[in-house]
Design a protein around this nucleic acid. Structure first.
Lengths: 290, 290
DNA sequence: CGTGTTGTGAGAAAAACTTTACAGAATTTG
DNA sequence: CAAATTCTGTAAAGTTTTTCTCACAACACG
């Protein structure tokens, strides 16, 4: 038996550019949970990929198989061969990379960070924070430092679409004191401060706190000094095999917050609903996950 | 949907005592290379196990299935779940949160995205891209769009510390054409373009390509039109239970790239070594993972 | 010898695959 | 902006494969 030099997965990737829209959609679906979906009946695969039956038949031939059964047979062979191999499942995230490859080591670390970070989150506090952010009573200020202002801006860009009165402050900018002039009680600050913690951020937090604003802090596992002032803090694990830190876990929290807040605000802000609706139409993104 | 408490493999083992000789022979064959052999046609399985067709049919019913197709369907389901891996099986990441809590749903989705994204990366291409980015021959341009410029800036901030001649362009800015004036052959562009893909980014990529620059693209699973011009593309999964997309998987790739490039450049740029060293001292971050 | 098991062969029924034709949609081209 | 081209889904029909079942003979074993 001649060991096939390339798996079907490879073959699909190679041909990816020659495929049409629907075929690519199908290819994605096959790769989605590979190889399980390719082992069912053709019609089921078509349904799952949301393409028509002939599209599947056409593509299978395009990939060089005489028919769907032949395609399946090779998938099974592949599966057999794979099972023979190392049982170590997630030894490698990126197929074909040595397990010591940076991609694998890095991914291991990030997943671990995420697990660890989530394990230490109090869901009730998270919900509370989201409610504070969603509440349209006061202004929402979003603050980031030298590196973390990218996170801050990411949050800002989304909040801006969800609710009014959102301000993005970069604590390293020398303009930040001006922003604080009209902070009043009931305003909410979301502050990102990861090591190395920035003095400006701390000062800014102090003033905001003093003026009666609520503070929500995203920091790392060693916690920025701001946490003593903050009403709610979330610490993320950030260690990766790199000379720098990872903000992946914090990004996850931020994205989860965006999603939660948007659910909370749903329907409230009529004027934004329009804009959102248009976006949903354009991106075909509005899927109910309940 | 009730999660089956037992796999088919378990089920066979349980019933093993109630089985007759030929049936046991069949069972052994199924478990031999599980689950591949069970996914082919019934007749093939019979031949492989050296039993008759009716024996297979009879045993499948004995196991409690209505017919062979039903048996196969469950095998496929099992395979699907197994591929998801032990990591994603966690049904509560944040302890104490109901498994339907946004934090858990979101984390599931992100982990799944990461797994899927990494599974489709060619490590050789990734290394190649990192070498291109590390090569100090030409300039390094980093380009992002409306949302993705946060990723671009994150990469920029780190590259700036690693190598000289790094430029950050925001394709939504109307100043970008000026940046392209002195692009020359050998320059490298790192472009972020996720849906909804931006026309400006495409135009910018076209000009850069035409001027002989190399393009590295970070996009989503549906791939920005820029990918046709790009020398190397990486597509990430971005779907999460939210009205918006997630850039978490792409951030992971970006961070992994930063780490890899920094390893490649290590020692080359003497003038930056100082600055780095000081940083490492301050952050106690310098850990050798090699 | 009797009981329970297994294989053979065949045929009916069901399911699956392949192909074709065509119309509507999407995209490209001029 | 219209025409041309390409792509895609629907429907249907024909073909092949697969599954299921039955009857019966052969076999194993106490």
């Amino acid at each position: 038996m001649s060991e096939p030099t390339s798996t079907i997965s490879d073959r699909i990737h190679e041909k990816l550019d020659d495929l049409t829209r629907a075929e690519r959609q199908l290819a994605d679906s096959i790769l989605e949970n590979y190889p399980a979906s390719g082992l069912g009946p053709l019609a089921a695969l078509a349904t799952e990929a949301e393409v028509s039956v002939p599209t599947v038949a056409r593509m299978v031939q395009k990939l060089g198989f005489k028919g769907y059964p032949e395609f399946q047979a090779e998938l099974r062979e592949e599966l057999k061969a794979a099972a023979r191999g190392p049982v170590a499942k997630h030894d490698a995230w990126a197929e074909g990379a040595p397990s010591g490859h940076m991609l694998n080591r890095f991914t291991d670390a990030v997943i671990d960070n995420i697990r660890n970070t989530l394990g230490q989150i109090d869901p009730a506090l998270f919900d509370e924070a989201c409610e504070m952010v969603a509440a349209p009573k006061g202004r929402l200020y979003i603050v980031g430092g030298r590196i973390t202002h990218t996170l801050a801006e990411y949050l800002f860009l989304h909040m801006q679409m969800i609710r009014p009165e959102v301000v993005h402050i970069q604590s390293t900018s020398n303009a930040w004191p001006h922003y604080l002039l009209d902070v009043k009680e009931g305003d909410v600050f979301v502050i990102f401060d990861m090591r190395r913690y920035e003095n400006n951020t701390l000062k800014l937090a102090e003033i905001a706190h003093q003026k009666g604003a609520k503070l929500i802090l995203f920091t790392d596992q060693w916690r920025s000094p701001v946490h003593r002032l903050a009403n709610i803090s979330f610490s993320s694990r950030i260690v990766v095999p790199s000379a720098w830190d990872s903000i992946s876990a914090t990004l996850l929290l931020t994205e989860a917050m965006v999603s939660t807040v948007q659910n909370l605000c749903w329907g409230d802000t009529k004027d934004r609903a329009e804009e959102l609706e248009e976006m949903f139409d354009n991106t075909r993104l509005f899927r109910k996950f309940t």
